[in-house]
């Protein structure tokens, strides 16, 4: 599984990292640190990735299964 955080949509709510810290990290300004490019989800963490993506108020995280 991989995920893409839309640079234009990520507004730094930090919900993804709060709910799935094992998948998502934030940069110093509170934005998802992988914005703008495809990032890998470690095998076994797919469910956490879904939870974190679902939590985004701006639906900025897209998952590719």
């Amino acid at each position: 599984m991989r995920y893409l955080v839309d640079q234009a949509l990520c507004c730094g709510h930090g919900q993804c990292a709060a709910l799935a810290p094992e998948v998502y990290g934030l940069d110093d300004d509170g934005y998802n640190k992988e914005v703008g490019h495809l990032a890998d989800v470690e095998p076994g963490l797919e469910e956490a990735a879904r939870t974190g993506a679902m939590a985004c108020p701006d639906a900025a995280i897209r998952l590719f299964e």
Binding site: A8, L9, G12, D29, G30, Y31, D58
Partner: peptide
Amino acid sequence: SALGPYFSP
């Protein structure tokens, strides 16, 4: 999507 970017940190 239209408004969010204007309210980011």
